[in-house]
């Protein structure tokens, strides 16, 4: 019998542009998660730098092997950590990145692919786009990371699920907006719909880790949640307040759901590939 895995989401409010203070903050939340017997703690997007960094991006950036990340590596010796930073790639491009640290070392880095540059967003001005959706083994199963806007593109969870992931970690910095359009905060509504839809129809866990606090008048709404492969919300954090959210991921539930509802088993990736290849005028290897 498989065991459930306790994970934590650190719904925190990083200080904008203050890397050292944010390192201290990470250590405090990691300590708390450890105390709550979690095996993994997930921080929001750009948790080590803050979100609206603008021209600070260059000075806050670090390479994946930068000494400034050493404290996160050390803290990950007995609990896995997903934290957000600005990565300076070997080709000097700057990326919005989230790393997965385990047993004292950085095991995986995802670079945000979809950089929103509309409305209140300007990611594309300051950052280069990632070009890859890689999966890796997390303590909660085969996983992929989708940073904020990545998750809004439905091809992203699809590609992760096709690659065998059973959990998507979604570190986000989602600003709260839309108070006159009915129901809850507009963005909260959209995010919950997305999380539940992906979880249930791709039969996987969605771990949505959103931040709180304000930057230049824009408030991040929190509401982090873990949604199970049957579409149920395992745990959801408060809105607008810091909170360490705890949830148990149950691989047996994923197995049961996929047995009952074999959408992923029956998925015709070859047809998807052929359609897209033909649309883009590319040959299909082996066809």
């Amino acid at each position: 019998m498989t065991e459930t895995v306790r994970i934590a989401v650190a719904q925190c409010a990083p200080a904008l542009g203050a890397f050292g203070r944010n390192l201290d903050m990470h250590e405090r939340w990691i300590e708390q998660a450890r105390g709550a017997a979690a095996s993994l703690v997930v921080f929001p997007e750009l948790s080590l730098t803050g979100y609206y960094v603008k021209d600070l991006a260059g000075e806050l950036a670090c390479t994946a092997d930068d000494a400034r990340l050493e404290r996160i590596a050390l803290a990950s010796r007995d609990i896995d950590v997903i934290a957000g930073f600005i990565e300076r790639a070997p080709d000097a491009r700057l990326h919005i990145a989230s790393g997965y640290w385990a047993k004292g070392s950085l095991r995986h880095v995802h670079r945000k692919v979809y950089l929103p540059t509309y409305g209140i967003f300007d990611d594309g001005r300051y950052f280069g786009a990632g070009e890859h959706f890689g999966t890796f083994d997390s303590v909660a199963g085969r996983a992929g990371i989708a940073i904020c806007e990545d998750l809004w593109h439905l091809s992203v969870p699809y590609l992760y699920s096709a690659a065998g992931a059973t959990v998507i970690f979604a570190p986000s910095d989602s600003p709260g907006r839309g108070v006159a359009e009915g129901g809850d905060l507009g963005t909260a509504d959209s995010c919950r719909l997305m999380n539940r839809f992906y979880a249930q129809y791709l039969t996987m866990y969605i771990v949505f880790a959103n931040r709180v606090g304000h930057e230049d008048g824009i408030g991040f709404w929190g509401g982090s949640e873990v949604v199970a492969p049957d579409g149920s919300v395992v745990a959801r954090a408060a809105e607008f307040e810091e909170e360490l959210l705890l949830a148990d991921v149950d691989p047996a539930l994923t197995a049961r759901e996929r047995e009952r509802n074999p959408l992923i088993r029956d998925e015709r990736e070859d047809l998807v590939l052929r359609h897209l290849a033909s649309r883009l005028g590319l040959g299909v290897p082996g066809a």
Binding site: L16, K54, D55, L56
Partner: peptide, 12 residues
């Protein structure tokens, strides 16, 4: 093209 957030915080 000198664009910093107003909430640029000190790293003490």
């Amino acid at each position: 093209d000198f664009l910093y957030p107003r909430d640029w915080e000190a790293d003490l």
